[in-house]
Design a protein around this nucleic acid. Structure first.
Lengths: 153, 153
DNA sequence: TCTATTGTCTCGCTGAGCGAGATAATATTC
DNA sequence: GAATATTATCTCGCTCAGCGAGACAATAGA
């Protein structure tokens, strides 16, 4: 296997490390899904909805489908599954009665925290030991990584 | 949406940032898959195989299935698809003729670099501007995140 | 040699997600 | 204000990824 691309230096090692983290995180997500009789897509949907709540966006079915990259049929299926499990409530938007507003059930949020909370706490704990400059470096790196990975060339 | 778990501080912001990076990275992977008539699993498989090559592990069908969390039938299907696309070669291991060794085609590696290379280069470029301590902080953070996300409680 | 055990593959099935189109509510045009 | 276009969601039928069960071949152990 001849090494392609840039020479393997300390920078590349960090990129590989970042990739490993993303891979493992995906696996934990899949475990959480299986544990609660869901699929990865369902978990991703819940995360999107929680983000929307945090950002004050109102989450409609169509919006969710766009976030997940699903078409309308697939989106309906995801919502059906989550509703059947009681993790979600459909409400018709009274202002525009075509739209369906989605609300995550409180219990689903608790399930998420029970699973991911300790994991997040671990990372947060590490960060608390970082001084100002180190935290800044991490933030700068992640912002750059996000920009690099979001760029549409 | 009442904020659960730890109070939202600068540490949590970084965790969210990390999660965003992982999500976007997954989307890029899916784009790459679609672009080359593959599925996410197929791309994950190729990545596993490349990692195995880098680490000197010989990649058999069973090993790959374990990495991907697929059963033997699903694993055979992945390998069939990749072989049909010419990204992979099956070889019976002469030492143990039950085993099938998998080798990634050079052209598939090139496709990967064409897509992910620029993205990786961007991140590497940012890291080159970091001084010793900043790089160390990023590495320490990622190692901790990896440990936190790999831990089996 | 005869019997486990291991590694891969085949078959049939379930179900996630797609395309096409139905339905209902809102916006626009005359 | 009726007629038409657009938007948001859902229904139906289909394809194909991945699963369980089991077949088959090669190796390991008695």
């Amino acid at each position: 296997m001849s090494e392609q691309g840039p020479e393997p230096g300390p920078e590349l090692e960090i990129v590989h490390l970042l990739r490993k983290v993303t891979v493992e995180f995906g696996l934990r997500q899949a475990e959480f899904a299986a544990l609660h009789h869901m699929h990865s897509t369902d978990v991703r949907a819940l995360i999107c909805l929680l983000d929307a709540g945090r950002a004050g966006t109102d989450a409609t079915a169509g919006w969710l489908g766009a976030q997940l990259g699903l078409n309308s049929a697939g989106t309906t299926a995801v919502i059906d599954r989550l509703e059947r499990l009681g993790h979600l409530t459909r409400t018709r938007d009274p202002r525009d009665r075509r739209r369906v507003l989605l609300a995550v059930d409180e219990r689903a949020v608790e399930l998420g925290w029970a699973f991911f909370g300790p994991l997040i706490e671990n990372i947060v704990a590490v960060l608390r030991d970082f001084d100002e400059q180190e935290t800044a470096a991490v933030r700068r790196f992640l912002l750059a990584a996000h920009r690099a990975v979001t760029a549409i060339p």
